[in-house]
C-alpha cells in the first residue's frame, strides 16, 4: 500500500509532520519541578507588586506614620487591601488555611522507648502564612510511627480535608496514611517501607469520593 502524498505532507504548518515523526521517548519524559519552586515564583511576584506599590506611594508612608489623623486617604486601609491581595496570590487554599491567631500547637509525647529513625521539616508548597510542620519517623517497640508536629494549621476549607501521604522518591506512588487535622501520631503499615517512601506530603483533598491524591500538595518534606 502506498501513501497518498497528502498523507505524508499534510496542508497546514509545514513543521508539524517532521516534528511528529521526530518524536522520541525523551520528548515524552517529564520530571516534576522541584517542590517549593512555585512558592519562590509567588514570592518574587509579591515582591514585584510591593515594589510597584512603593514607587506609587513614594515617601507617603513615612509622613502618614507620623501624622495620625492627618487629611487624605487613610493609608492603613490601603495597606490592608494590598495585603489581602498579596495573600490571594495563588492561594486557593491558603486564604482559608491562614487564620490569624488560630494557633493549635499540640505537644506530642516523646517517650523513653521511642527511637528516632528519621525526620523532616515540611516545606510550604504554597504560601500558608505561619503554618509549619515537622515529621519524625520513630520506632516504638518494633512498630514504626510517623509523628507530625504541626503549628498554626487552620481547619481545612469546608468540603475538603487534609490527608497525609508517604510518597516514593520518584513521586509516582503516593500511599495514604489517612486524614489529618494537625499534629498526629500514625502507625506506618508494614507494607510501606519509609526508606523508599521517604517523602512526607500533606495534601488538600476535596470530599469527592476519589481516594487518589488530588495533586494539590500543601506541604512536603523528605525523611532523612
Amino acid at each position: 500500500m502506498t501513501h497518498d502524498p497528502e498523507e505524508l505532507e499534510p496542508s497546514g504548518d509545514p513543521r508539524l509532520a517532521g516534528l511528529l515523526r521526530g518524536l522520541n521517548d525523551d520528548d515524552f519524559a517529564r520530571t516534576d519541578a522541584p517542590a517549593g519552586l512555585f512558592a519562590s515564583i509567588a514570592g518574587r511576584i509579591a515582591a514585584d507588586a510591593e515594589s510597584a506599590r512603593s514607587l506609587a506611594r513614594g515617601g507617603a508612608d513615612d509622613r502618614a506614620d507620623h501624622s495620625a489623623g492627618g487629611s487624605g486617604e487613610p493609608p492603613a486601609v490601603v495597606r490592608l487591601a494590598d495585603r489581602r491581595r498579596t495573600r490571594l496570590l495563588v492561594a486557593a487554599a491558603a486564604a482559608a488555611v491562614v487564620a490569624a491567631g488560630a494557633a493549635t500547637i499540640v505537644a506530642t509525647r516523646s517517650g523513653p522507648d521511642e527511637r528516632l529513625l528519621a525526620s523532616a521539616t515540611l516545606e510550604q508548597l504554597e504560601p500558608l502564612g505561619r503554618t509549619s510542620a515537622t515529621a519524625r519517623l520513630v520506632d516504638e517497640d518494633g512498630t514504626t510511627h510517623l509523628v507530625i508536629d504541626a503549628s498554626n494549621m487552620a481547619p481545612p476549607p469546608a468540603g475538603s480535608s487534609y490527608e497525609l501521604w508517604l510518597i516514593d522518591r520518584k513521586v509516582s506512588d503516593p500511599r495514604s496514611l489517612g486524614t489529618v487535622t494537625g499534629s498526629e501520631d500514625i502507625v506506618v503499615p508494614s507494607s510501606i517501607d519509609p526508606k523508599t517512601y521517604a517523602i512526607v506530603d500533606i495534601s488538600l483533598e476535596p470530599d469527592d469520593g476519589d481516594h487518589r491524591h488530588s495533586g494539590h500538595s500543601l506541604m512536603r518534606g523528605t525523611l532523612g
Partner: peptide
Amino acid sequence: VYRDHSALVYS
C-alpha cells in the same frame, strides 16, 4: 497554569 504546565517547562 503552573500546576498544569510546570512539568513540561521544567523538563
